[in-house]
Design a protein around this nucleic acid. Structure first.
Lengths: 212, 212
DNA sequence: AAAATATAGATATCAAAATATCTATAAAGA
DNA sequence: TCTTTATAGATATTTTGATATCTATATTTT
């Protein structure tokens, strides 16, 4: 056996399930539950108990033998793993239908995200505030990013505009882009792009519908 | 060798990539391109050529040796596979920020979906039209579903209301629910639920950010 | 005409993820 | 006290998906 400890890699799929667990654990905590077993969680999530067990073990969730996982402690390790124990300042580019909806979503505070600014090019939007977030003109992007030292961008612009704005964001030192535009962005190594595309989910649904 | 032909199973991941291919093929078609190779597509999508090749082969995309896949023919097979070659009537329940944004998204016409009605409980929304879609009171759900023979529901209500409405939908004969509420719905076998959860994507992004 | 090349097509290998099985133990019940 | 049981913990197996390699061939180049 090696004397080196290999840091256990946590799979992407596990990471994607963590928010779901977190939501349930928040509820349990609010109801005063201190322990919950993987079998109980399995009913709630419709996942297999063993999937949940392995997911929680992999982030180091504390447990009590024969009793389940500790609610408060598990919340703490998941939040810490995701960095959701303190808020990251972020901003949004493109105040269209989707962008406005995201600005109105107050759940981000539970997800480590605080949207502190928005950007758009339409004169009737610039200068106003939407859901308490001020809308700047896109031309001011670089300045605001630098002044506020922002690292995370939420991109909700039309496909045609996405790459151009991305180049501006990268030049301004942005480290992560959450991309809702239906294009693949080209960025230098080191910049993280997380693509979101609901048409994938719709395709999955339609494929299931057809094969019945 | 068996005399039975085993219908090749198409993987979920392949299905989720199909809309992306379709978008690119629409563009190519608009520009008059008749053939495109997997290597060319790989640059555009940032996927490996072999992934694309296998994906397209698995839905039976027509090709020409040494030249690539046929643009028009590939569009046809993908659309057919997903059932996007003709419109499915759908409706939306919950005209909040997200629901309104989805109503305003006109791209659904390219995705085999036509939203013909919306439902909400707020008196100031009921009776109006939003983006050309009439908003009914949720109490009228069963009636409208039956009258219009609707099969696909888009659920954008708060978590607390989701299961109750789902029960109504199921009782009214709905076959598929595209669920944007952050809960796991319980439905009888045969009803398809496709869950959409952007917090998974955010978790992925945050995990990547932390591990740099 | 001959050689080189880029491609789909087919098959094989590898990696990731899900699932199953086994073990030890603390708690509950007889 | 003894037995049963539900659980986390650990390991093994299976399945799924991604990646690599090889082949045949139409096209292009020489």
């Amino acid at each position: 056996m090696s004397i080196f400890h290999h840091k256990k890699e946590i799979s992407v799929q596990t990471i994607r399930r963590l928010p779901q667990y977190l939501r349930i654990f928040y509820n349990l905590h609010a109801y005063g539950r201190e322990l919950v077993s993987s079998t109980a969680l399995a009913e709630e999530t419709q996942l297999l108990p063993i999937v949940i067990k392995k997911d929680l073990q992999s982030v180091g969730a504390p447990s009590k033998l024969r009793a389940g996982f500790k609610v408060a402690g598990t919340i703490a390790v998941i939040e810490k793993f995701l960095g959701w124990n303190n808020l990251n300042k972020a901003f949004l580019v493109g105040v269209g239908h989707l962008g406005a909806a995201l600005l109105g979503f107050d759940g981000f505070k539970n997800h480590g995200l605080e949207i502190v600014a928005a950007f758009d090019t339409h004169p009737e939007k610039v200068g106003n505030a939407l859901h308490g977030v001020r809308v700047y003109h896109t031309a001011q992007l670089a300045g605001v990013i630098e002044k506020e030292n922002l690292k995370i961008a939420i991109l909700t612009v039309p496909a045609a505009a996405a790459q151009g704005i991305t180049d501006t964001l990268v030049a301004a030192g942005i480290k992560a882009i959450w991309n809702f535009a239906p294009v693949n962005l080209t960025v230098p190594a080191g910049v993280i792009v997380q693509k979101e595309d609901i048409s994938s989910g719709l395709a999955e649904l339609c494929a299931k519908l057809k094969s019945r």
